[in-house]
Design a binder for these strands. Structure first.
Lengths: 339, 339
DNA sequence: ACCGGCGTTTAAACCGGTTTGAATGATTGC
DNA sequence: GCAATCATTCAAACCGGTTTAAACGCCGGT
């Protein structure tokens, strides 16, 4: 196994200095076209590619961005958001040859994870997802001098650029859809309240009820999990007057809720209407097909990556608002039962 | 914003040379304990952490491993395997402060992605997942001199160390379970045949039928997707004599299949038994709860990471076999209907 | 013949660590 | 008392790039 070629080898073969090779590589002006050709063909012949660590050292840029997934391990696999979001990031950064460093951590170690990411300088910037109401990370990245964009935290006073995709229109639309179908008792099985997006969905549900002139609905925590959704559904169905419709924080808890309701002998949607959130691939294949809200996490990842890259390169970037989530009506919602 | 401290700053503050600081950092023997203390407290005071790029440059080790996800974008979010697998990797590499570089690519660009990963030397080794029957990657990583472990390709002549988790016992168990329940016509809705693991599951199904003295069952492609599972199920149900049980390649297609069957008026499990694979979080909350096969992708990730780290550090590592997948019996399987 | 200016190229310093071989001072052996 | 040994420390080279300031060759103008 022969040592892999360095810039010096290329320079020698092309009969120029290392500086010239570097200039050509970064297509800087002021190199004769003939020289450029010689350098390029020498590089090609040797199969030379610059070492990223050497480059990182001299430029001070790691050419990588970081994503921290701070979820309970058992939740990690259940969320369709992250894979799609990462795919969106990738489309942007791979264009410039940048990399994505992934760190997973338990929520309680999150801060240390960011600290290490910053200390090592393995990344030039990070995404802040799953922002919580009282989140320590904005202050942390500011302290560390680490460029960061907040993903989905528009109303924040974080001082960070943020990329937003509004969940609320879809949820409001869902509630209106149910109201139009005659529902008057519409419950919500929410995600963990510390998450900004869970809270926003809850707020949208609550606002929409008020807009429709309805009293406050029943609210139960579902934790974005199947188990939580199932438990909340059981509790709702045990009430003296169960709701006729339930809006869930995500598809996972909605699907589990549907199963619980059917298990209790209810027919969907005749006896109970159900709405989810996410539009997971399975949603059109549940029985009945799940009415749900669809966002576009790929475009979200793409926009977030663009914002972060710009922030890293220029020092500033504008907030961005993506197309809001929309309602997808399928078979799990229907006219309210007559009591 | 003050420049972040370097090893030189620490050395000056501690009153020693940079070499000494480096020795202390890497706890090499031959430094007086008193000096060690001084260096450590100086580092602490300045909040110094070594720059990973500088380190990478001089040691020639990137201290990161790479994972390439070459899936169709629409499939990326549907597989519970990857997040869990990555979580397992993370538990191992984070101990030593290593990082995980994630690259997503379309299957057709996969080779280029590995090439770039190797050329940049951003990673010290890679995981090869989703191995296909005639896979170009083992030869590629050998050519590139890139350490790699094959994830789940035991029978291969790849020459690569591999970490395996046998799917087959669970599938065989599933078929036996169905046979015990009186089923004689057990179909299989398989994953893409180019994947080694999809093929293995199919083979196990087929072998188990033979072992039970049954004729060959009906085989249909389900592509590991909801849509594919639904379509295959429709086709199976349209047959003159539909199977009384279906073993699916994964939970996603199984769940979609259940919905299709119920939609066609079948009661589960009275009219049709269904078995999935993966044991996704939703599996115990479908209606009826899904009988399925459970592997442990977290431990798989952990073992793969250990193997890769050892391979990187020592140049060799032993193949490893993990505990095979097992059958989890729930409500979607029951006695065969009497015809 | 000399000078200024331009386009092109380069030597050398630098990024922040690691590593080697030698220097230093203290201890031991004879 | 002096050389040999040992533990400790350090100066300097090195990793493979980028960048700056200076040098070079060549041209036209006077």
């Amino acid at each position: 196994m022969t040592r892999r070629p360095t810039i010096g080898d290329v320079a020698k073969l092309a009969g120029v200095s290392r500086a010239t090779v570097s200039f050509v590589l970064n297509n800087r002006p002021g190199v004769a076209v003939d020289t450029q050709r010689r350098v390029r063909s020498a590089a090609e012949e040797l199969g030379w590619t610059p070492s990223s660590s050497a480059r990182a050292l001299s430029t001070g840029r790691a050419r990588a961005v970081g994503l921290v997934l701070a979820r309970e391990p058992e939740l990690i696999g259940t969320d369709p958001f992250f894979p799609a979001f990462m795919a969106g990031i990738e489309t942007v950064i791979s264009e410039t040859g940048d990399g994505l460093m992934l760190q997973m951590s338990r929520p309680e170690n999150e801060v240390d994870t960011y600290r290490r990411l910053a200390a090592d300088r393995r990344v030039d910037g990070v995404f802040l997802t799953d922002l919580r109401a009282d989140d320590a990370r904005p202050a942390l990245v500011a302290e560390l001098g680490l460029p960061a964009v907040a993903v989905g935290a528009p109303d924040s006073g974080t001082g960070l650029p943020s990329v937003n995709l509004d969940d609320r229109p879809a949820v409001r639309e869902a509630v209106r859809h149910l109201v139009d179908l005659g529902h008057r008792d519409i419950a919500h099985v929410a995600g963990p309240d510390e998450f900004v997006h869970a809270r926003r969905r809850r707020q949208a549900w609550s606002d929409a009820l008020a807009e429709a002139g309805l009293p406050e609905g029943t609210l139960l925590p579902g934790g974005f999990t199947a188990e939580g959704g199932a438990r909340a559904t059981r509790m709702l169905l045990e009430r003296p007057t169960p709701p006729t419709a339930i809006v869930y924080g995500n598809d996972l808890s909605a699907t589990a809720g549907m199963a619980v309701a059917q298990d209790a002998g209810l027919r969907l949607p005749q006896d109970l209407s159900v709405v989810g959130f996410d539009d997971v691939p399975l949603a059109s294949y549940t029985n009945p097909p799940l009415t749900t809200c669809r966002a576009n996490p790929v475009s979200w990842g793409r926009a977030s990556a663009q914002a972060l890259v710009q922030l890293i390169e220029t020092g500033t970037t504008a907030d961005m608002d993506l197309e809001p989530a929309t309602l997808v009506v399928r078979g799990s919602t229907g006219p309210a039962p007559v009591r």
